[in-house]
Design a protein around this nucleic acid. Structure first.
Lengths: 352, 352
DNA sequence: GTGATTTCTGATAACGTTATCAGAAATCGT
DNA sequence: ACGATTTCTGATAACGTTATCAGAAATCAC
């Protein structure tokens, strides 16, 4: 026997559009029209209805709204993790807050889809107007979600990008430019032998964008300057992997004077590894890392010179792109590449 | 003119319960009964309907379900940020993933409420069954959300806790125990003068639990051991604040041999400040910090000895508590205090 | 074999909202 | 001053689902 508030049973029902209509002395559809900012409503009526909405404390019932097949004011966010158990280790979780906030501002609900998503269930979410649009994370070069949604003309936005970008809207980290920025910074400091610790080879095999493009960027930069190339594909989730990877690099290329990494954690490992070989950062070797901003870089000793993106800004903008796409159907596709910002701290220094 | 898939117009409608019913040769309510595991359905019918569900690729329309007033399979998460613009700086965002994952496992949707929440709109979400339950973050000692939901007998779970806990379910960080654990560790190492860098005074004024209980815990521990007391209430969001706070502590209490902080960032500041006064960590002074786990502690030099909670575990469990409360109406209130785990790294050492 | 129970199924009516349509009132053009 | 247009409003039906009820079929008790 579920307990109910029996003292004020009438208070246990939500205020509906019908209550508002009765209070304002108008019909139900009129209230609906006013709520949806439709044309053809007398100013005087609008006032009266808004007054009733305020006094009754009415809030629209989003689910009922969706039912009729209109816009549902709901966005989904999808990350194709194989097993949801890995979620806590996924770097893209830092995108959550920006999306949540933009959605809130634009009065959208946001559903984080972490369960397994089948093509059928994805289409069904649109068809039954459970969602208006979806923001895709971890987009592969050839991604079934993109293909499916493109074929069916359902609106979506990517954080990341795939191979065929024709007509698609996305925002992505500009890793190629980032690599050039890193080289610019280091070359100005006189470095001529720059090694690279990048994403694991498995990521590249899985056609994950940053893994492919960061290595591409490194290769391009190397050939632009004509420097020797040495890189290592390693895991990003521990100081140890950076440590080991750096030892390998030093063994293979003892002449290196700078190391670029794609994770602040592995950069910290690099610094420790260099120290064990008697090379202090930044006097004997420079280290810089490319990645999301945060407090991480400033607590490492020496603090890390970085090229950093704000996951908040990027995800916020992605959600805004999504809402704009929904409200302006004829908007041309927006394709945004974000270059990171250079933050010079202590870990890079001119060669002496 | 919105583009529609005109080649297969029939494919643009979602498969509904009615389609399933027709395919299986039964009525709509029968399918509904089977979907909701109601009693009184012939085994043979159940089979046939499930077969139809599979072949048609039917997925239930969650929103329509809610409309009729049943369970909505949706949880909300609420953090009472004053201005949503602060969201990216809110430490509780690390609770997102655990909740998202537990919700996913139990097949709940999760809505992050970041917009301003009024008492009216909160009640309305329950009344109109837009949500089944809510997980409250940043619970104050006397919290209007708790009072309101308690009065109206709506299910909720807190991460944190308020003053009157009678009948309420929560999971919270056990800061009192954490302080005793910290003292235990340091006292065993021979420390007798232990200073404390804690939450800003304003948080305590706002009756935010950890701010109140960590200072209480410090006081209790001090009086238990009979040590002199010196603490400082500072901001937690930068290395600098830890730096300044530590200089103040050193000025006021030059004899201190250990510092406890409630943020890894400020601990890093402490280490830097001690260095400027010629005191190296851990030889001349020990530093330990209490907070969420992560990679932070291991990149600081020296790496930080910590007492750490897993935000993932805590939030995961909170969401599980919520779903259990919803499925078992007669479940007694669960009240869980989680003590942090001690991770000894390099920043603490026996006094010499 | 009769009546009483149990098991199963389907009509029907809601839930709160919006789209469609048609009609009423106000405004306009001449 | 008249019809034509524009502005405004309300009936009605529908969205996909579940609760309620009542009736049919099967089982049970004696």
């Amino acid at each position: 026997m579920p307990k109910k508030n029996t003292l004020f049973p009438n208070q246990n029902r939500a205020v509906t559009i019908a209550d508002v209509a009765k209070a304002a002395g108008v019909s139900v559809p009129t209230v609906s029209r006013i709520l949806n900012d439709k044309e053809y409503v007398a100013e005087e009526t609008r006032q009266r209805v808004h007054e009733a909405i305020r006094t009754l404390g009415y809030t629209p019932h989003t689910q009922a709204r969706r039912l009729r097949g209109g816009i549902s004011k709901t966005l989904a966010l999808h990350h194709p993790i194989e097993s949801p158990h890995d979620l806590s280790n996924v770097i893209e979780t830092s995108y959550f807050t920006g999306i949540a906030e933009a959605a809130s501002e634009k009065e959208y609900f946001i559903n984080f889809l972490v369960s397994q998503l089948t093509p059928e269930s994805l289409l069904n979410m649109y068809r039954s107007s459970q969602i208006d649009g979806i923001i895709l994370l971890q987009v592969r070069m050839d991604d079934w979600r993109v293909n499916l949604l493109r074929e069916n003309n359902y609106p979506f936005v990517m954080i990341g990008r795939c191979a065929d970008l024709n007509g698609l809207t996305f925002i992505d980290l500009d890793f190629e430019t980032a690599m050039l920025q890193a080289f610019d910074h280091l070359v100005k400091l006189g470095h001529r032998n720059i090694a690279f610790l990048t994403y694991p080879r498995s990521w590249r095999k899985m056609e994950i964008g940053p893994a492919m493009r960061s290595l591409d960027g490194y290769t391009i930069a190397q050939s632009k300057y004509g420097f020797p190339s040495s890189y290592r594909e390693i895991g990003l989730n521990s100081v140890e992997e950076g440590f080991e990877g750096t030892l390998d690099l030093l063994h293979e290329n003892p002449e290196l004077t700078a190391i670029i990494t794609v994770s602040h954690l592995t950069a910290a490992g690099s610094i420790k590894a260099l120290a064990t070989r008697g090379r202090n950062v930044p006097q004997d070797c420079s280290v810089m890392s490319i990645g999301f901003g945060g407090d991480f870089a400033s607590v490492v000793t020496p603090s890390l010179t970085t090229l950093e993106w704000s996951p908040y800004e990027i995800s916020y903008q992605a959600a805004i792109l999504m809402t704009e796409k929904l409200t302006q159907k004829d908007l041309p596709p927006q394709q945004i590449l974000v270059a990171p910002g250079l933050v010079v701290r202590e870990s890079t220094k001119a060669v002496t």
